[in-house]
Amino acid sequence: MTKADLIENIYLKTGFSKKESDENVEMVFDLMKSNLENGEKIKIAGFGNFVVKEKATRRGRNPQTGEEIEICSRRILTFKPSQVLKSSINEE
């Protein structure tokens, strides 16, 4: 499934034109991206939470050469699926 499928689904079910469906879907992901960029989490009931985590600087190794390197502190995005999503994935 891609963004095009999401847009098509909105188009078929809402009465929005193709263009409007496209703009709405793009806007939803743009809003989510700006929100996460600001370090704020997103909680979608029934789906899951997107959380920005701060990682501290640590010493690591280049697994190929064994060379010791410093891994700088950084921010990463994690997704924690909701219990509802996890159970629906496990239903046969």
Partner: peptide
């Protein structure tokens, strides 16, 4: 179990701000 892999653009944008 479901997994999410962040895309390149978003990964970079999230990391832009100094912690």
């Amino acid at each position: 179990l479901p997994f999410f892999k962040v895309g390149k653009e978003l990964r970079e944008r999230v990391n832009l701000e100094e912690p």
